[in-house]
């Protein structure tokens, strides 16, 4: 199994409920495709370095999971046709992962997840009602 992570950006003015719904859809998708969900996390709302689809701000989300190629293909397909997603990037983190061990590591929070740095261009706004997972 491989480990992948994907960052997707939702429109800046999206409602919390709509964002939650997209998150749930992605989580379900990974499980349905026989992948293992490691984590799904809200990274914050930021000012984009350049405009994307006329948006100047975006809500960043990170999803980490284990799986084979088809899981990723399906995830990318969904992200591509979901209108609220203005940009996404998927990255292969590691090859040939021991799924069980990795899951335990993740759950035990041994994996230190990076936080966005705060500078003038990309400041973090408090998520408010949105929980950071």
């Amino acid at each position: 199994m491989r480990e992948y992570e994907a960052v997707y950006i939702l429109k800046g003015n999206i409602e919390a409920a709509a964002a939650e719904k997209i998150g749930e859809k992605i989580k379900d998708l990974i499980v349905n495709q026989k992948g293992i969900l490691l984590g799904h996390r809200y990274l914050g709302k930021k000012t984009l370095a350049y405009r994307i689809e006329k948006e100047t701000r975006g809500n960043y989300y990170l999803v980490s999971f284990l799986g084979e190629g088809p899981v990723l293909a399906e995830l990318e397909r969904i992200l591509r046709y979901t209108e609220e997603v203005i940009r996404f990037l998927s990255v292969k983190v590691a090859e040939e992962i021991d799924a069980k061990k990795r899951k335990e590591e993740f759950d035990a929070k041994k994996i230190i997840e990076p936080a966005f740095g705060s500078d003038s261009r990309v400041e973090i706004e408090e998520g408010g009602s949105r929980e950071a997972r």
């Binding site: 990076p114 966005f116 740095g117």
Partner: peptide, 10 residues
Amino acid sequence: ISMDYKEPKF
């Protein structure tokens, strides 16, 4: 030192 594309400040 970690090198991550998610850390623009760095």
